[in-house]
């Protein structure tokens, strides 16, 4: 045995040290959470207002030119069980016991809208190797471009909310997800789900407006009559309703650095299937590692130089041997 474990570990440690000194020591390479874009737009989903009429599901289909999805034998009614590459928006129901009390954990029911939350620091965008998933620098919409996509489904796997979905039943598949009706915005229209929502449970607006609206709703005393706007913040299309008792949690305010769709609910979000998440985004952790190791290609180039030099030395030795 001419190679000792110690020698090997020494060499390995040396290599590690090169990486460490070029990367970790430089705080500029540590990547914090991304910031909310300046003109971020988004949605407010207030589960206590939602009556489960599914108008948003239908509106989404029309706006995005999606065919109905069937989960029953009859194939008569649009009955998607979950979001998919063919359904970008679904209303799901939490139910317990008799289910008779709305927004109550025990013997109650509650609705939840499942669609893209448009993260401030999206995992799918960080994951996508070909920039098919992008976050608009202005309005923050997380968009998808099929022409760029290679179909690796890293976004599908990475999204903490399970939003991007893939078409497994076609040789020319695409990813399907809510893009906040970005094709309708230039026409002056808002997201179709918010436009059609009869109760204002889904409300469109800038993130700033939405945050204001959330504060207003949370400030109201449960039971007092409150005017709720529909379609978009500032639309003037209002109806009055008794203020509900919200859980003390605005989903999307802090989750993984925040999302542009935020949610209010009368039952804990875990019951609605929303994961409990830390404030630091996963993409920032992942990219910090990547930047540390490969930032500016400094570490790889230094390492390559060392490796080539060592290889050259070794190849000379070997030639001498032969």
């Amino acid at each position: 045995m001419t190679i000792s474990r110690r020698n090997f570990l020494k060499a390995a440690a040396g290599g590690g040290a090169v990486l460490a000194t070029t990367g970790v020591a430089d705080p500029a390479l540590a990547r914090p959470n991304l910031e909310m874009p300046p003109k971020a737009i988004g949605l407010l989903y207030d589960a206590t207002l939602c009556v489960g009429c599914k108008a948003c599901v239908v509106a989404c289909r029309e706006a995005n030119d999606l065919s109905p999805v069937f989960s029953t034998d009859e194939k008569l009614w649009d009955t998607p069980l979950d979001i998919s590459a063919y359904t970008f928006n679904v209303i799901k129901m939490y139910k317990d016991g008799s289910g008779e009390h709305k927004d109550q954990l025990k013997d109650g029911h509650a609705f939840v809208k499942r669609s893209c939350l448009h993260c401030v620091d999206p995992s799918c965008v960080s994951a996508c190797p070909v920039s098919a998933m992008e976050k608009n620098a202005e309005n923050g919409i997380v968009s998808y471009d099929a022409d760029r996509c290679i179909g690796c489904r890293y976004c599908v796997a990475a999204c903490p909310y399970g939003v991007p979905r893939f078409q497994y039943d076609t040789p020319k598949p695409k990813i399907g997800k809510c893009e906040l009706c970005r094709h309708r915005l230039p026409e002056g229209k808002i997201a179709a789900c918010a436009e059609k929502c009869p109760t204002g449970a889904t409300l469109f607006g800038t993130v700033e407006q939405i945050k204001g609206e959330i504060a207003r709703r949370r400030a109201a005393k449960p039971g007092e009559m409150v005017a709720y706007e529909r379609q978009r913040v500032g639309s003037g299309d209002t109806h009055e309703k008794k203020a509900p008792l919200y859980v003390n949690h605005v989903y999307g305010e802090k989750e993984l650095g925040g999302t542009q769709m935020m949610m209010l609910s009368g039952v804990p979000f875990v019951a609605l299937g929303m994961p409990e998440l830390p404030e630091r985004s996963y993409s920032s952790i992942s990219e910090t590692i990547q930047h540390t190791l490969y930032g500016g290609l400094i570490a790889p180039v230094v390492a390559l130089g060392g490796l080539v030099a060592l290889a050259w030395r070794a190849s000379k030795n070997h030639q001498d041997e032969e």
């Binding site: 009556v51 998607p80 799901k92 129901m93 289910g99 939840v112 109760t199 109806h239 009055e240 299937g273």
Partner: peptide
């Protein structure tokens, strides 16, 4: 008159996807 109704057809709930669907 303009207050919205609480939709009672959902109690007991019919044909809504559950939070967790087996897939």
């Amino acid at each position: 008159i303009h207050e919205l109704a609480d939709v009672k057809t959902v109690v007991p709930p019919v044909s809504y996807p559950r939070i967790v669907e087996e897939q």
